[in-house]
Design a protein around this nucleic acid. Sequence first.
DNA 1: ACCTCCGGGACCTCCCGTTGGT
DNA 2: ACCAACGGGAGGTCCCGGAGGT
Lengths: 191, 191, 191, 191
Amino acid sequence: MPQRNVKEQLVDGASRVLLEQGYHAASVGDIVAAAGIPKGSVYNHFDSKEDLAMEVVRRYVDSYPFDALLEPESSPLARLRTFFSDTIERTVARGVTSGCLLGNFSTELVGHSDPISQLVADSLAQMGGAATTVLTESRQRGELPKDLDPVVLGPYLVDAFEGSVARAKVGGTRAPLDSFLDFTFDVLLKR
Amino acid sequence: MPQRNVKEQLVDGASRVLLEQGYHAASVGDIVAAAGIPKGSVYNHFDSKEDLAMEVVRRYVDSYPFDALLEPESSPLARLRTFFSDTIERTVARGVTSGCLLGNFSTELVGHSDPISQLVADSLAQMGGAATTVLTESRQRGELPKDLDPVVLGPYLVDAFEGSVARAKVGGTRAPLDSFLDFTFDVLLKR
Amino acid sequence: MPQRNVKEQLVDGASRVLLEQGYHAASVGDIVAAAGIPKGSVYNHFDSKEDLAMEVVRRYVDSYPFDALLEPESSPLARLRTFFSDTIERTVARGVTSGCLLGNFSTELVGHSDPISQLVADSLAQMGGAATTVLTESRQRGELPKDLDPVVLGPYLVDAFEGSVARAKVGGTRAPLDSFLDFTFDVLLKR
Amino acid sequence: MPQRNVKEQLVDGASRVLLEQGYHAASVGDIVAAAGIPKGSVYNHFDSKEDLAMEVVRRYVDSYPFDALLEPESSPLARLRTFFSDTIERTVARGVTSGCLLGNFSTELVGHSDPISQLVADSLAQMGGAATTVLTESRQRGELPKDLDPVVLGPYLVDAFEGSVARAKVGGTRAPLDSFLDFTFDVLLKR
DNA sequence: ACCTCCGGGACCTCCCGTTGGT
DNA sequence: ACCAACGGGAGGTCCCGGAGGT
């Protein structure tokens, strides 16, 4: 067998390029160039660019620290803050101007790829649901102001987060992200 | 003899197509087809697709009801709610799955068009600033809980709004938008 | 306008290449190379390779000497013989190994292009019909043996002709064509 | 442990696919999919797609009922009619729109594969020769009109047959085949 | 013998911007 | 100002055949 890891290299390269350039702007040529593999090898592993992007989204979602978020060891609110904080750091590390793959694809691919859009919608819902779960815990511990409904608040926080990621991206600064974190946990959730 | 408002038709068509398809996915051919004009005419009025898109963004921003938002007639919070509410209705009227041009371009065009990205960033900042202005008014009237800083809260609300538009878009439902409106004005700002 | 005749050159080149190589074996690159035009120009004139091939078939059919065949000046049988004889000479002039576009496409494109297949079927029917018309004339003049039904014989002769063109093509010799002509007119129709 | 009759499956699949799609339109991928074997296995048994197609043609020719045609039991003309009639039924059973492999390849592969073209030409000549043999028998029995030369008539009938198969294929109807049979044996050969 | 993975190259199509006659 | 025609280049996809471990 000539080489190994071709598929792995491909998905890695695609992850980087799709995150940085977007779906339509990133050509398969760009991706294979970044992955360091020949173009002809792409379709040995994926049926289409869309199929490859699906895998990239799956891996992206899998990289979220959901385990730590739901582990009932420390305070729920602390865990939620850590979840967002870690995510912010990872986002910044990849480059603020790359933004969040879910947010990027949520606006770019509607009407162009139903499978990806569905996956993105589900992933966003999953995040909102996880937040709701933690907030419900928090409420049971009496940490949460009583007027805040976890079911509504969870997705709301995810929306606010994604919005701030988008603004950070287009502005080229992490400020909106830090602002989101501070306001959410130091003001909104703290009475 | 050619059409009269060729430029107008062009911008109208481009507004629709760019909002629905995105920048990279919409070809100049798609745009002129939607506008009902010949392709060669585009470059009599704009230097490039990018230039045309700039004009589309400007018109999009101009269509926001900033005047009504800042007119000191009714209650500031009421005006802010109306601003978002009207915007939601217009968004829904254009098709939820189209989303918001600013949100769409904020994630798609970073790294591809600095002029558009800058314009989008500025427009988002403008919205946040307008919200801050109104919230400051509100604070002066004592309508606003004291722990909420208008300077932080204004952009935060815009982020949350844009995030909910994105989620509505990818989910194909207006629910996140209504949820945003209710939570923001019935809970968050009504402590 | 940079150049003219681009479309004409394109169709001419396509006629040559499609006849010689067949539909699937001839790439658009081959065609534009033969036509001496850049590849990007093809789709200014035709929607697809299939569309271009349709035009080629139309021109091919138009090149048959149907007028002379149906002109009631000389003997019907003489005109029919001339029709086939002329067609044979033109076929040989283009290269026996190219065969007949209708025959070639009739076997290659079924299941791949319904529009072309239909056009080819119609054209073949047209030839058979024309032969029938002339044979009917002949019968009325008493030139035709009574047991030969023009309605059946017309298409039969066309089939035999196309079959002999195919055999000449694959054999690389005009012998089957001459044989067709002699047997048909000196034996079959001369009872 | 792999399959047993890999080669057999391969040739069977290739026979079907090449007959239905043609040589250039059928990819090796299509063939192995139809055969239910992995693509890499092809080149263990054949040097190339061309080589595989050669085998397919050989089997196709072997499937003709030449034995029954030449067995001097019943009337020569009856045997010839049966030969064509059986061939027609087998052709129809495989799908009229598939046509005849010899006819299909005779027009598609000239200039692309000399070995296949040669084999097809020889096979066609073989058929014509067999017909001539039987017609000669017939002549000796006095069954055949004296003006019909078996040497010319044999190939002529094969050409007419192949032409009618092509017309049946592109027209999607067996009518030309039945017409060929009736006219040939009820009119042409019956004085 | 088998078969997974590989890969250089070419497929058809379409892109965006331009040219130049009207 | 208009716009039909143009064109270099790239888009995603798929081709046939091979390499090499099992």
